[in-house]
Design a protein around this nucleic acid. Structure first.
Length: 857
RNA sequence: GCUGCUGUAGCCCAACGGUCAGAGGUGCUGGUCUUAGAAGCCAGAGGUUGUGGGUUCGACUCCCACCAGCAGUACCA
């Protein structure tokens, strides 16, 4: 028998055996509790990177543990396979997007298999397959029928590099595309939207029902939805029938309004501008619209605006106030107009000072004098002054009272405003799901009948990356009769945002091969929600918000009986690589590939300049990536898995360190040696009687069961794989140091070590379990170990004696004593008496099995 | 600016409010082995727990303020 640890040999061997035996298939046995473990499925970009390895290893450990714990586990994998890189590859290299995508899938699938991930491959899905996108189209039509998919002309984000529009969620805070990094432009286009705003309130409220989600993700979603409670108020315009509507969260300050401001793009701007102001206003609007989004929202940019000459009336005071336009008012939010309350809003205060507009105090803190001029806006709560009948009222109370009056007088009403906008889903690109709509000159937008789904992507398409949607250029595909009236009509030529594909894939996995339905609701309701979802924080808003939205809509369509798709969410940290940077260089040039650098003396190979050494997220541009393939080749998949789980807690960033990888390889070798050396003397040991244990045996057994308890706890609640592995190391050390290697307890320890190791390093555990320890069945089908509480109790404990909280020493006492007994031991101890002599004990604090603390004067 | 997270040994990280801070790894030093080295094995050194207050019999742990790093967000009325 081979006595050396050879990961390459045993790993591929067992991967094959497991596949043949189908041990990773999803069981149907409904007598077991279910567990759905899911990693965010990848975009098939070409090769696996370390981030994938980390993500999938985490779910795999959980899937394996839960199987051993008696759950029926669903652990599937698939491909988020539509998207622009495939189309760009086609443009650059002339490969059809489908071919490029499927080649990448084949490559990445084989890399995943080499990692020993226990997926049920019979449920694999690819979103670009007609078997899948047929149902994506079907779901779109469900939205359409529910009135949740509509077309609208609006100013949308246009990505000039990718030549398509983008949703708000896909543009970052600097106004750049999440994918191409290009600054987006605003274009006025007729586009498809999904009405996510209808679900804003539910999406916000139900965050409270997700205790298993990280707070920061919930905070980010809540901020994105951006609920504000306030009032809609109307200010009559002098000389116009139309009123000017504003949204405010501070109706209590309405008596302090000294002007109103419109966004430059506001439709009323032209109407309110007086003749003498016309030229100046037009010039100002031109200037503002010439600025990019970035310039307009730049930090500490002065707020600029000019008067229109128009006047409005504050209905509460009856006063005439000027109407201004200013660039700090956003057309897209609220009504695109605000009431200016300089005394109680920071922005308004600055604006009023700059433009010499009056500042009227209407809220004062207790004891303050309203007559004293403000040096900055007072934005806190207080009591109302200069506010007519509301004088003296607390501002919180006044909010309601003033809205009530507005309602009574017909000046406005209470209103809830969200920052969330509807989801723009049209994309002017080829490699995506065709929107299953036919535009008929007579009937309008007509859904493609279910029987005609899928609307297949035509294969022979010219891709240039420029001009209108590629599908629009295919006359033979575009021109079809209207399904309703038969008139010659045109297909919709935009494709869907790929985030739609990924908003429901977790449902398809529950019934992945169903040709009759999107999924059998019974299957979906049985398996869902996902018990543990694992993925990157970058989807905190995007994918995770969209998926929640889809789940709620499909529930309302009667397909699902639950509200939230992901019970628990773990956002794993990034994998960072050692990075060399030349601070004297600019752009991509400054990142120096590590294979060109001597780690002992990092210098730029070209210029000889010293380099800055640090860690940064692995990426091609920084040349700091480590290929999973290389690591597996050198150390094996088990070592790679162990390292990545051990090096840092799962939600924290992880620094790749070759020395630590070797440490894990060493550990697996130690386990190997421990087990194979034991096998040499194993015969007969298991059968030895264990009636009365020696002290050494008791100590060892305590170590074994302490490890079982600790590892189980680490895997059950918080996912602390790093400390779980450290417990494995402790157990391994305890076995190595055990003086009683010829005992049945030692045999129990060896078996336990291998069983506990199995979810983390599945191949070596299987090899040791079956080949060396001679067990007949797979280690992965064994029941998980249960800690024996009795074994964990020591006969004696070292009781800590403290005086006034300071430790003075320990005494050996029998374990299990109650508080009074322990205090008695302590009082009687020589140690305590030495310190307590002649002192009065004011209090004695006893922590069972731990310590006794005497408080003396 | 606001919000959140993180600061523990050279480095990565542990530590239900309870011993004089240590599980594990890595690195370092020494020993063992070797002709020598590597690997393996054994041993050892290394700390004002970011800073300053507070609560408590007792604080790495809880509270407040500050500092540093990371992330998100930013004229949202």
């Amino acid at each position: 028998m081979e006595s050396r640890y050879t990961p390459d040999v045993i790993e591929e061997k067992w991967q094959q055996v497991w596949t043949e035996q189908g041990i990773d298939q999803t069981p149907n046995d409904s007598s077991k509790p279910k567990f759905y473990a899911l990693s965010m499925f990848p975009y098939p970009s070409g090769n696996l990177h370390m981030g994938h390895v980390r993500n999938y290893t985490i779910t795999d450990v959980l899937a394996r543990v839960r199987r051993m714990q008696g759950y029926r586990v669903l652990h599937p994998m698939g491909w988020d396979a539509f998207g622009l890189p495939a189309e760009n590859a086609a443009i650059d290299r002339g490969i059809h997007p489908a071919k490029w995508t499927y080649q990448n899938i084949a490559q990445m699938r084989s890399e995943l298999k080499r990692l020993g991930l226990s997926y049920d491959w019979s449920r694999e899905v690819a979103t670009c397959s007609p078997d899948y996108y047929r149902w994506t189209q079907w779901i779109f039509l469900q939205f359409f029928q529910a009135g949740l998919a509509y077309q609208k002309e609006s100013a949308v984000n246009w990505d000039p590099i990718d030549q398509t529009v983008l949703a708000n969620e896909q543009v970052d805070n600097e106004g750049r595309s999440w994918r191409s990094g290009a600054k987006v432009e605003k274009r006025l286009l007729r586009q498809w939207f999904l009405k996510i705003t209808d679900y804003a309130e539910q999406l916000l409220n139900d965050l409270d029902r997700l205790p298993g989600w990280p707070d920061r993700v919930k905070v980010m979603q809540a901020n994105w939805i951006g609920k504000s409670i306030g009032a809609y108020l109307e200010f009559p315009i002098v000389g116009l029938d139309e009123p000017l509507g504003v949204f405010t969260t501070r109706p209590d300050t309405v008596y302090g309004v000294t002007y109103v401001v419109l966004a430059p793009e506001h439709p009323l701007t032209k109407k309110v501008t007086t003749d003498d102001r016309q030229a100046a206003v037009t010039a100002f609007i031109q200037e503002v619209s010439g600025q990019s989004e970035l310039e307009r929202t730049a930090e500490d940019k002065p707020k600029r605006g000019i008067p229109t000459g128009g006047k409005a009336i504050n209905p509460f005071t009856g006063e005439e106030i000027p109407i201004w336009i200013a660039d700090y008012v956003l057309c897209e939010y609220g009504t695109g107009a605000v009431m200016g309350v300089p005394a109680h809003d920071t922005r308004d205060f600055i604006f009023a000072q700059q433009n010499h507009l009056p500042i009227q105090t209407v809220i004062i803190p207790a004891g303050a004098d309203a007559a004293v001029p403000l040096t900055e806006a007072y934005v806190e709560a207080g009591a109302l002054v200069n506010s007519g009948e509301f004088d003296g009222m607390a501002s919180a109370e006044a909010k309601g009272a003033i809205v009530q009056k507005a309602e009574k007088m017909g000046w406005g009403k209470s209103r809830v405003q969200y920052r969330l906008r509807d989801w723009l889903i049209s994309r002017q690109r080829y490699w995506g799901v065709p929107i299953p709509i036919i535009h008929c000159p007579d009937c309008g937008a007509v859904p493609v009948p279910d029987a005609d789904l899928p609307v297949q992507l035509p294969e022979d398409v010219g891709l240039s990356g420029r001009g209108p949607s590629p599908l629009a250029q295919m006359e033979s595909w575009v021109n079809v009769p209207c399904p309703t009236c038969g008139t010659l009509a045109r297909r919709e030529t935009d494709t869907m945002d790929t985030f739609i594909d990924s908003s429901w894939y977790f449902l398809r996995f529950t019934d992945a091969t169903n040709e009759q339905q999107v999924f059998d609701p019974t299957q979906a309701n049985t398996w869902m929600p996902v018990d543990q979802y694992v993925g990157g924080i970058e989807h905190a808003i995007l994918h995770l918000l969209y998926s929640r939205f889809f789940t709620k809509v499909l529930r309302d369509r009667g397909l699902l009986n639950f509200d939230e798709p992901f019970q628990r969410l773990l956002t794993q940290g990034m994998v960072q690589g050692l990075t060399y940077m030349n601070p004297n260089k600019e752009g991509k040039e400054k990142w120096i590939p590590s294979d060109l650098v001597n780690p002992a003396d990092p210098k730029d190979p070209q210029t000889g300049e010293p380099l800055k050494v640090g860690f940064a997220t692995m990426s091609k541009s920084k040349h700091n990536g480590v290929a999973p393939e290389e690591v597996i080749k050198k150390y094996g998949a088990d070592t790679a898995r162990m390292f990545i789980l051990f090096k840092a807690p799962p939600e924290k960033d992880l620094e790749w360190d070759e020395a630590d990888v070797e440490g894990q390889f060493r550990f697996l070798n130690r386990v190997w040696r421990l087990v194979t050396e034991f096998v040499g003397v194993a015969s007969g040991i298991r059968q030895k009687k264990t009636d009365s244990l020696t002290k050494e045996e008791k100590d060892l057994r305590r170590a074994i069961h302490t490890a079982i308890a600790a590892i189980t706890e680490d895997l059950d609640d918080e996912y602390q794989f790093n400390t779980a592995i450290s417990e494995l190391m402790k157990l391994s050390n305890a076995l190595n140091d055990a003086p009683c290697k010829n005992s049945a307890i030692y045999a129990e320890g060896i078996d336990s070590l291998v069983l506990l190791l199995a979810p983390f390093a599945p191949h070596i555990a299987e090899e040791l379990w079956q080949q060396h320890l001679g067990h007949p069945d797979s280690v992965h089908t064994q029941p998980w170990l249960t800690a024996d509480a009795a074994a964990m109790v020591a006969d004696e404990i070292a009781l800590v004696i403290q005086i006034n909280g300071k430790t003075r020493g320990t005494i050996q006492v029998p374990s299990g004593g109650d508080k009074a007994t322990l205090e008695q031991y302590a009082r009687e101890s020589e140690l305590a008496q030495r310190y307590l002599e002649g002192k009065e004990i004011k209090k004695a604090i006893v922590v069972p099995n731990k310590l006794v603390n005497f408080v003396i004067a």
